[in-house]
Design a protein around this nucleic acid. Structure first.
Lengths: 190, 190, 190, 190
DNA sequence: TAATAAACGAGACGGTACGTCTCGTCTTACA
DNA sequence: TGTAAGACGAGACGTACCGTCTCGTTTATTA
């Protein structure tokens, strides 16, 4: 039986999320999270194996878990705009930004965290995206032979690229242009 | 004139690059680099402002600086394959992987490092990519009204996505599929 | 009326006494006692105010409380030998040794424990010693003007000294020599 | 070659000595000493193996090392008064009191500390005491067959007893009475 | 013969301190 | 002067216990 203190859990995740946005992943300390949350360090170590695991949970507070299906109005391009605009907005949140960057670095050398990330964050979201594109295939709007995973990356990869490299604006206009190119292609039409 | 010891510089960069591949960015310490390189800590602090700056220099040792123009045989799709296959291969290097992930995380809260990254790594490479696509525009192979920066991201973003999320294979086949979709588009042709 | 669990009391005192002999006073923890005794921490805190109080009770289990009068055969020197030899043997018990040393240190900054120690341990024993010497005074065997408290310290102090400083053997022979010197004095008799 | 910071050494020993007198041995922490001394914890751990070793060094600052020979005016009883009165005064110092009690407890389970104590504190002092008594033997003032170590304990043991048990006043008067009894004996002279 | 209330085991909690590790600065001795 | 070595003040690491505070679960009267 668990006698876990839910208030402490919330305080820890909120403190972690706020702090990482303020000082960045690498300067974030378990000590700092505990102090900000008004909690003993052991309470963090009791329930999470690492700083990364805490942040992953904190991320889910914001990005939300399985948020139901993606919109499907029948108009694929309009729906993709709705969805990618939301992604763009999420990336603009300093908490999400800092947490994601930290996790990306940590995942490389922490297989446990990588598994957790795949299971809790990437997997569910990616499945929703695939499902929306499959519906478009069934509606005859996109090529039925398309590799849906590759298609998902074609749509979201460019956003990721802008976000990571900070080498250009990541705004709704860019998302719209990406959708347009992805759907119709870069090549000159004869 | 600097009395800088070039042998020490080499030893530091090599040690940093090797170590980051072995133990990861977050566990890498200046102390560790100095010990591995057989160098005093002060010698590192004297010449680099941060761990990230050392790694950025170390990265340039491997990825190389401005490597001349990208190939232009006239066949755009073939040239893109050559180029993106090389990118895929670079991402497979554990040293490059670890350094890049670390830099990505650090850049968010270190403007100096961000500037350095933009100037030394991202900028020059991106310029070469844009130049190759501009040539294709002039050759009438792709839409003359295309936003070239967005086009670069449409091609390289999907690779970045696979590399970061580790949610699918990042191989030559995937690169080829991405190029094909980017050029011709996802939409069903009537 | 208390519904105190006597089995738990015994288990706690035994565990405390055994543990302090094994790992010493400073490394002894309430947590450790509770675990060894198979008891919840609260059961200890419910009945004792401090680690020292537990040990004081544990000490009384072994050293025993008021063990009746000291022997009085009429032969003072022989009786003192019997008594001091017993004291020497007690000091040799590792449990007694560890508990006493711990209490001595703690007493300095814990007035409550000091009072408890004076009342339960030192007081009763000292009274018995004084009483035996008073009988000797009445029998005309020792100086009737003697300060009995000082005399007690003259006999037992040297034992305490050896025990504390560990700078010489604390055995029956030493006790006998001490008794002999105390009774007849160090000065050359002309 | 040592590059030890002498100022830090002094600050640590002074802080340790002051603190132990204020809060007692068991509540004394390395963290507290470091903070009070304005020093990093590592600087303490670098040079001392334990809290006890720091306090032992701190004790030597006050009690002093080999302070030259004990007084020898030819009058043994007068000299012993001078010496034991000084001992009584030392025991009255709260710093000495707290340090000694702490060391006594620690010594039981720390052979290294015990050796250090014997070598640096107890040994030198005891040798001086023995030497003074030997001079008295040679002067024909005390029994030439006396076990000098036992005689030392006969004189200082009672002081130790009073100090430890706190069961009676430890003052010059008591010391004088002890000397008198030790020299002439408790037994009624016929 | 229940019910009921304390004492109990277990262990989570907010804290303090542990002893270790690394940070970035500073000092020393050598080349 | 630049360097290898490494001491220093600072502070986070992850662990062990502190003493307090619930939790159900015995027990052992009391109704």
């Amino acid at each position: 039986m668990t006698r876990r203190n839910e208030a402490a859990r919330q305080a820890i995740l909120t403190a972690a999320y706020d702090l990482v946005g303020e000082i960045g992943y690498s300067k974030l300390s378990v000590e700092g999270i505990a102090t900000r949350a008004g909690v003993g360090k052991q309470t963090i170590y009791r329930w999470w194996p690492s700083k990364g695991a805490v942040l992953l949970d904190a991320l889910l507070l914001t990005v939300g878990g399985p948020a139901g299906d993606l919109p499907d109005t029948g108009d694929l391009e309009a729906d993709l705009r709705t969805i990618l605009f939301a992604t763009v907005d999420e990336f603009a949140d300093p908490g999400v930004d800092a947490v994601m960057r930290g996790l990306i670095a940590e995942i490389a050398h922490d297989p446990g965290l990588a598994a957790l990330y795949a299971e809790r964050v990437d997997g569910p979201v990616r499945e929703l995206k695939r499902r929306r594109l499959r519906a478009a295939q069934e509606a005859g709007q996109i090529d039925p032979d398309l590799d849906l995973d590759a298609a998902v990356d074609l749509l979201w990869g460019p956003l990721l690229s802008r976000w990571l490299q900070r080498a250009g604006p990541l705004d709704h206009d860019f998302a719209a242009r990406t959708i347009s190119m992805a759907l119709s292609g870069m090549s000159r039409k004869m």
